[in-house]
Each structure stands twice: as structure tokens, then as C-alpha cells.
Amino acid sequence: MWLRHTVTVEPYEGNSAVGPLYGQPVQVRCFLEEKNRLVRAPDGREVTSSTTFYCRLDAVDAPPESKVTLPGDRQTTVIDQARHDGGGLPLPDHLEVQLI
């Protein structure tokens, strides 16, 4: 019911001699929140995230530097992702993906 939006994620798979490598595009049903907030990148830098999406835990793996296409064809990059797993408790398990 909450997953009203769809984004396309191209998971970052590393670098090659000719540039970054990305996996196959995956369409992900999610809840999209467009709100500026300060987040910490995996390398410790403080970065401003302009958009966050929330989806099911098993929907996608979106490591930092993955490409994301938002509704309206706006492209952005993953800063970090956070898994929220209730461990069997009746809590909403979900993946939080922070975008530049």
C-alpha cells in the first residue's frame, strides 16, 4: 500500500579500465521521500541527501555509487543504504536508500 513509486536501480559493481561497471537495471516499487538531510557516506564524509527511497528488503541491493533513475527520468547516485530488519518482530522490515 505504501509502495506508490517506482525507481530504476543499476547496482554498482566496481571499476574497470574504462570506468564504472553497473549491473542490470532493476525496477523497484518504493516509497519516495524528497527531503534534504545531512547523512554520512561510507567513507565518513558528511553529504547532503536530497532524496531517500524505502522498499522491501529483498527488492534490490543498491551499494554506494549505484545509479538510480527517479520518476520524471531524473538520475541520481546512491550515497548509502541501511537495512532495517525487525528480526521476526512485527516491525516493518525495509531497505532505506539515501540518494544525492
Rank of each mutant, 00 (worst) to 15 (best):
residue 91 L to R: 09
residue 85 D to L: 06
residue 26 V to R: 13
residue 85 D to Y: 04
residue 55 C to A: 03
residue 93 D to R: 01
residue 8 T to C: 09
residue 67 K to G: 07
residue 41 A to M: 06
residue 61 D to T: 06
residue 64 P to H: 04
residue 66 S to E: 00
residue 60 V to Y: 01
residue 14 G to R: 11
residue 8 T to I: 12
residue 99 L to D: 09
residue 59 A to T: 04
residue 8 T to F: 08
residue 9 V to Y: 05
residue 62 A to F: 00
residue 16 S to N: 12
residue 21 L to D: 15
residue 78 V to N: 10
residue 70 L to W: 08
residue 25 P to F: 13
residue 39 V to D: 06
residue 3 L to V: 05
residue 12 Y to K: 14
residue 42 P to K: 05
residue 2 W to E: 08
residue 22 Y to M: 11
residue 24 Q to E: 10
residue 67 K to F: 06
residue 91 L to T: 02
residue 57 L to Q: 01
residue 79 I to G: 09
residue 80 D to Y: 14
residue 57 L to Y: 08
residue 39 V to P: 11
residue 24 Q to G: 09
residue 5 H to M: 07
residue 10 E to G: 11
residue 79 I to V: 13
residue 16 S to Y: 14
residue 83 R to V: 09
residue 51 T to E: 01
residue 48 T to P: 08
residue 49 S to I: 05
residue 17 A to H: 15
residue 69 T to E: 10
residue 93 D to H: 03
residue 90 P to W: 07
residue 100 I to W: 05
residue 34 E to Q: 12
residue 70 L to E: 00
residue 22 Y to L: 10
residue 14 G to W: 01
residue 97 V to G: 08
residue 36 N to V: 04
residue 72 G to W: 08
residue 97 V to K: 07
residue 64 P to K: 01
residue 42 P to F: 05
residue 61 D to V: 00
residue 65 E to Q: 08
residue 94 H to E: 05
residue 40 R to K: 12
residue 86 G to N: 11
residue 34 E to G: 10
residue 9 V to D: 06
residue 32 L to Y: 14
residue 12 Y to I: 03
residue 10 E to Q: 14
residue 35 K to C: 13
residue 92 P to S: 03
residue 21 L to N: 15
residue 100 I to D: 00
residue 74 R to V: 13
residue 49 S to N: 01
residue 94 H to D: 02
residue 91 L to H: 05
residue 75 Q to W: 12
residue 27 Q to S: 14
residue 59 A to M: 01
residue 72 G to A: 12
residue 79 I to H: 13
residue 70 L to Y: 02
residue 3 L to K: 10
residue 81 Q to I: 05
residue 42 P to R: 05
residue 7 V to W: 03
residue 84 H to A: 10
residue 64 P to E: 00
residue 29 R to D: 14
residue 89 L to K: 09
residue 85 D to C: 07
residue 47 V to M: 00
residue 10 E to K: 11
residue 89 L to H: 02
residue 93 D to N: 06
residue 21 L to Y: 14
residue 45 R to A: 07
residue 61 D to H: 00
residue 54 Y to F: 01
residue 73 D to G: 08
residue 33 E to N: 13
residue 43 D to G: 02
residue 93 D to A: 01
residue 64 P to Q: 02
residue 4 R to E: 13
residue 48 T to K: 00
residue 89 L to Y: 06
residue 31 F to H: 15
residue 88 G to A: 04
residue 65 E to W: 01
residue 94 H to M: 03
residue 90 P to T: 03
residue 13 E to N: 08
residue 89 L to F: 09
residue 98 Q to K: 08
residue 23 G to E: 12
residue 50 S to R: 04
residue 16 S to T: 14
residue 38 L to R: 06
residue 23 G to H: 13
residue 79 I to L: 10
residue 1 M to R: 13
residue 24 Q to A: 15
residue 85 D to E: 05
residue 80 D to G: 14
residue 9 V to C: 06
residue 96 E to P: 01
residue 13 E to L: 13
residue 68 V to R: 07
residue 69 T to N: 07
residue 11 P to C: 11
residue 60 V to I: 09
residue 22 Y to P: 11
residue 45 R to G: 01
residue 71 P to V: 11
residue 99 L to P: 08
residue 41 A to V: 07
residue 64 P to D: 01
residue 16 S to C: 11
residue 78 V to H: 08
residue 66 S to L: 08
residue 39 V to M: 02
residue 21 L to R: 15
residue 50 S to T: 05
residue 86 G to P: 10
residue 58 D to L: 06
residue 32 L to D: 12
residue 21 L to I: 14
residue 57 L to M: 04
residue 24 Q to V: 15
residue 74 R to G: 12
residue 91 L to D: 06
residue 96 E to S: 02
residue 44 G to A: 06
residue 86 G to V: 09
